[in-house]
């Protein structure tokens, strides 16, 4: 396994790089993030190095439809959290083109107020293959920022619709950002993103229609539209541009953060995330073995081509492939 997990791209992770990283050099942090983003083979070594430095930070997801002011709010929040004595990491995800692979990332335009603020480290990520509002490397990048010493990590998703829920798996607290004049009360009764919210923020509260949206949200939540099992999702109004309501939002988030830690739910979330991380890494490894052993992807493509022509069911092939792919049972002790 060690062979296949060695770094193959770009300069390797030198002891000097780690020294600079641990010494707090921002450029070193940026370089480690680049590795996590671009070189899957380097991830195991990086993860080994980060361990012992993770588990304390609170990760806050900021999600919502395009154009509601997520970046401006994220910037204002970062400042508020930093003023409260936190070091703050920001991971801002913007969409990649499925056609060219390129991405236009404009979040920094809204974060001008953070320029020169050493308490904050901001990184833009293109979503690449991620389909749920985040980049595949988002959690790994947040790990790097936490190990670099950040106390709060803000994860800003791409502008999402109703069902992009990846942020739930990555964040301890999810902030759903909405703005007035975007849909009636029916929208707030639909399942999906609204159930993911730990806090709902109505941003651009200087626009008309804010009272109506607040009322319809309160109504929807009173009918149980929020996260199953919770009955009082807080709803706050802000104007990020005018810095209104930011203090209240920071206070709400900090109070939820200490509740999470005190109740043990923060640890429970970390366990769930670790479970995921382990499962995904093993799945990736098993799939890579299959690729090496039988060229699985190419075979699947060929069968799909044949089935498209013949109109047959895919299951005879699936059954054959599964039956021929037995996991060796003899070394269960290695899993202890």
């Amino acid at each position: 396994m060690a062979e296949s997990m060695r770094s193959s791209r770009g300069p390797s992770l030198t002891p000097q790089l780690w020294e600079r990283f641990l010494g707090g050099e921002r450029r070193a942090c940026a370089q480690v993030i680049t590795k996590v983003e671009n070189d899957p083979d380097a991830v195991p070594e990086i993860r080994d190095r980060l361990s012992g430095r993770l588990g304390r930070a609170i990760r806050i997801g900021i999600t919502g439809p395009p154009g509601v002011g997520k970046s401006t709010l994220t910037s204002a929040l970062a400042r508020g959290l930093a003023d409260g004595g936190n070091r703050v990491g920001i991971v801002a995800v913007d969409p990649s083109s499925p056609f060219t692979g390129g991405a236009f990332m404009g979040d920094r335009i809204r974060m001008d107020a953070l320029v020169g603020d050493d308490r904050v480290f901001m990184r833009s990520l293109a979503s690449r293959a991620g389909q749920g509002g985040l980049a595949p490397s988002t959690a790994g990048v947040a790990d790097v920022l936490e190990a670099f010493g950040m106390d709060r990590i803000l994860i800003e998703t791409v502008g999402v619709g109703q069902a992009e829920l990846d942020v739930m798996a990555c964040a301890d607290i999810v902030v759903l950002v909405l703005q007035p004049s975007t849909g009636d009360a029916i929208q707030s009764l639909k399942s999906g993103i609204i159930e993911a919210a730990d806090v709902v923020v109505v941003n651009k509260a200087d626009l008309p229609g804010v009272e109506m949206l607040l009322q319809s949200l309160r109504f929807a939540f009173s009918l149980g539209a929020g996260r199953p099992g919770t009955n009082a999702t807080p709803i706050l109004a802000t104007s990020a541009q005018a810095s209104e309501g930011i203090g209240e939002l920071v206070a709400e988030l900090e109070s939820q953060a200490s509740d999470l830690v005190d109740s043990g739910r923060h640890r429970e979330m970390r366990r769930a995330r670790l479970e995921n991380e382990i499962r995904r890494a093993i799945q990736t490894h098993l799939w890579a073995s299959l690729e090496r052993a039988v060229g699985a992807s190419a075979k699947i493509r060929r069968h799909a081509e044949e089935l498209t022509l013949s109109g047959g069911s895919p299951y005879p092939f699936i059954r054959r492939a599964c039956a021929a792919t037995q996991v060796c049972q003899t070394k269960e002790e290695a899993w202890q």
Partner: peptide, 18 residues
Amino acid sequence: VEAGMEVVYLGLRQTPES
């Protein structure tokens, strides 16, 4: 972007430091 690059756009009125 068309050429497949990831562009971080900073926009107007930037200082060399920023």
